[in-house]
């Protein structure tokens, strides 16, 4: 008889085992979020919804709002900064320019968040690169405060998110049919008009997915607000870490971690809905 599905079980088993372990880890977070906190103990009590009720305080609302605000700013500035680079990366005439642009924009992705955050600390610090340069040039007398500010956090987060944004935008730009641009030019559109009326609208799906991916990604950022925010800027991740490791309130830390997970999933679900609707309207692809 035909062996219908060779290797099916052999290849399925390790994947299922991995999925079960992963699901168990997330389930533990879920489980802790509905347990009672016993002050001074790492053990937890019975089931309760008190942790979720405790969220309803202005300070937590502010942290959540700040997380959203910083993520949104990062997504928007990341888009503005990435589009020209992505466009150059796709449309540069010389091969080596394209290769160089790809390398320059992708490699930061692989140096890891701690190295990149530390680099920004050196750049933004009171005695850091920017302040030193500005002082040398005589533009300032006193160092300007860049560390521990929302501005500094966003500057670093935008740089972090640019590689991902560039990849997504470059893919979208590469898919634009060059004949459409030629047709527009042939009909009398100037290069500027071609860009604003043809190229940009055709890359809207890429723009949207870029914004949402970066938004979701930034919402779960930890080390940048932790080190550059230095406790003055708290995002939900920092609050969760604070609750877990300083206050040792594991149930509340679990609740906050769960909220962050829900936000990340929620924004991606939102993206799916919005992008598919827009793609349908544009009938791209």
């Amino acid at each position: 008889m035909l062996a219908k599905r060779p290797f099916f079980i052999t290849f399925l088993a390790p994947a299922v085992l991995t999925a079960v372990i992963l699901a168990a880890a997330i389930f533990e977070v879920l489980q802790y979020s509905v347990r009672e906190f016993i002050p001074g103990s790492l053990n937890v009590g019975g089931f309760t919804l008190a942790n979720f009720a405790a969220l309803n305080k202005p300070i937590y609302w502010w942290v959540l709002a700040d997380t959203f605000f910083i993520s949104l700013l990062t997504a928007i500035f990341s888009l503005l900064a990435s589009y020209p680079v992505a466009y150059a990366l796709v449309r540069a005439k010389r091969d080596w320019v394209r290769s160089a642009l790809v390398s320059l924009s992708i490699t930061p992705l692989f140096t890891g968040e701690i190295v990149r955050t530390f680099s920004w600390m050196l750049t933004l610090g009171t005695d850091g690169f920017i302040n030193s340069i500005l002082r040398k040039l005589g533009l300032i007398d006193m160092p300007i405060q860049l560390m521990y500010t929302r501005f500094g956090v966003v500057v670093a987060l935008v740089q972090f998110s640019m590689p991902v944004m560039i990849i997504l935008l470059a893919t979208a730009i590469a898919h634009v049919d060059r004949d459409c641009e030629k047709a527009a030019a042939n009909l009398g559109a100037s290069p500027t008009a071609v860009f604003w009326r043809i190229t940009l609208p055709l890359t809207v799906p890429g723009i949207l997915s870029g914004i949402v991916v970066v938004f979701a990604w930034t919402m779960s950022a930890f080390s940048t607000p932790q080190l550059i925010g230095g406790g003055k800027i708290l995002m939900i991740s920092n609050l969760a870490y604070l609750q877990g490791f300083s206050v040792l309130n594991l149930p509340f830390a679990a609740t906050l971690s769960l909220i962050a997970l829900v936000c990340a999933l929620g924004s991606l679900a939102l993206m799916k809905g919005v992008t598919s609707r827009i793609e349908r309207r544009l009938a791209v692809h």
């Binding site: 099916f8 399925l12 994947a15 299922v16 991995t18 999925a19 372990i21 992963l22 699901a23 168990a24 880890a25 997330i26 389930f27 533990e28 977070v29 489980q31 802790y32 979701a216 919402m219 779960s220 930890f222 991740s237 969760a240 870490y241 877990g244 594991l250 830390a253 679990a254 971690s257 769960l258 962050a260 997970l261 990340a264 999933l265 991606l268």
Partner: peptide, 29 residues
């Protein structure tokens, strides 16, 4: 196969799940 969508969803999810949530989960586990 049946359950393929679920399995894929779980195994792709680390791309979306915040690392601190995942790390916390593995700590508790």
């Amino acid at each position: 196969f049946r359950g393929r969508g679920l399995l894929e969803g779980v195994l792709w999810s680390p791309l979306i799940i915040p690392h601190f949530t995942l790390g916390f989960g593995f700590l508790l586990l």
